[in-house]
Computed example of a mutant assay.
Amino acid sequence: MENLLAAWHPRVLSILRIISAFLMMQHGGQKVLGFPAPPRSEFDLFSLSGVAGVLELFGGLLLLVGFFTRPVAFVLSGLMAVAYFMAHAPQGFWPMVNGGELAVLYCFVFLYLSVAGGGEWSLDHVLRGGTRGGSA
């Protein structure tokens, strides 16, 4: 059983990265492209929301394919921390009350990815030579 778990660890890490990136891209897509849902406000590239949207969309795309996983995940983790403290924390202490659960969860998932890397199914892994054992 331990061998099976050890073999699947880098693959499940990749699945976590892919799903988290796909979900993050939807937030950026909403802000920048109006897809898959209409934007909540008019898009202005030079606003905080505009910068966040670009980071969410293109950072999410880079994470989706696992390219520059560690630095991109670190930046997105910081983005989510800023989003939490600017938009949610002023509305109350508890994330469940202030609507910040997603921002907190994304922050720590991306922080984890910035340390753990992209996993076996990532461009980082392929470009590094596809060596087994590392999690890129």
Rank of each mutant, 00 (worst) to 15 (best):
residue 1 M to A: 13
residue 2 E to W: 11
residue 2 E to D: 11
residue 3 N to A: 14
residue 6 A to E: 11
residue 7 A to P: 04
residue 8 W to T: 09
residue 9 H to R: 14
residue 10 P to G: 08
residue 11 R to S: 11
residue 13 L to K: 06
residue 14 S to F: 04
residue 15 I to D: 04
residue 15 I to V: 15
residue 16 L to Q: 09
residue 17 R to L: 07
residue 18 I to A: 08
residue 19 I to G: 06
residue 21 A to N: 05
residue 25 M to F: 09
residue 25 M to Y: 08
residue 27 H to A: 15
residue 28 G to P: 14
residue 29 G to R: 14
residue 30 Q to V: 09
residue 30 Q to E: 14
residue 32 V to Q: 07
residue 32 V to M: 03
residue 33 L to R: 12
residue 33 L to S: 11
residue 34 G to E: 07
residue 35 F to M: 13
residue 35 F to E: 05
residue 36 P to F: 12
residue 36 P to E: 06
residue 36 P to W: 13
residue 37 A to H: 14
residue 38 P to F: 12
residue 38 P to T: 12
residue 39 P to Q: 09
residue 39 P to H: 10
residue 40 R to V: 07
residue 40 R to H: 10
residue 41 S to C: 06
residue 41 S to Q: 12
residue 41 S to L: 10
residue 43 F to V: 06
residue 43 F to E: 07
residue 43 F to M: 12
residue 44 D to F: 08
residue 46 F to W: 15
residue 49 S to P: 06
residue 52 A to D: 02
residue 54 V to M: 13
residue 55 L to S: 13
residue 57 L to E: 02
residue 59 G to Q: 08
residue 59 G to W: 10
residue 60 G to V: 09
residue 62 L to T: 05
residue 62 L to Q: 07
residue 63 L to F: 03
residue 64 L to W: 05
residue 68 F to C: 14
residue 69 T to R: 04
residue 69 T to H: 05
residue 69 T to I: 09
residue 73 A to R: 09
residue 73 A to H: 06
residue 74 F to D: 04
residue 75 V to Q: 06
residue 75 V to Y: 04
residue 76 L to R: 07
residue 77 S to Y: 06
residue 77 S to W: 11
residue 77 S to P: 06
residue 79 L to Y: 03
residue 80 M to D: 05
residue 80 M to A: 08
residue 81 A to M: 15
residue 81 A to V: 14
residue 82 V to A: 11
residue 84 Y to I: 01
residue 85 F to M: 07
residue 88 H to S: 01
residue 88 H to A: 04
residue 88 H to G: 02
residue 89 A to S: 01
residue 89 A to K: 00
residue 93 F to E: 00
residue 94 W to P: 06
residue 96 M to F: 13
residue 97 V to I: 14
residue 98 N to I: 01
residue 98 N to K: 02
residue 98 N to V: 00
residue 99 G to N: 04
residue 100 G to K: 00
residue 100 G to I: 00
residue 105 L to T: 14
residue 106 Y to M: 06
residue 107 C to L: 09
residue 107 C to H: 07
residue 108 F to W: 12
residue 109 V to S: 00
residue 110 F to Q: 01
residue 110 F to E: 01
residue 111 L to C: 08
residue 113 L to I: 04
residue 113 L to F: 03
residue 113 L to G: 01
residue 114 S to R: 06
residue 114 S to Y: 08
residue 114 S to A: 15
residue 115 V to R: 09
residue 115 V to D: 00
residue 115 V to T: 06
residue 116 A to K: 12
residue 116 A to N: 03
residue 117 G to F: 05
residue 117 G to Q: 03
residue 118 G to N: 01
residue 120 E to W: 08
residue 122 S to V: 03
residue 122 S to N: 02
residue 125 H to Q: 11
residue 127 L to G: 02
residue 128 R to Y: 07
residue 130 G to H: 00
residue 130 G to S: 02
residue 130 G to T: 00
residue 131 T to V: 14
residue 136 A to Y: 13
residue 136 A to S: 14
residue 136 A to V: 12
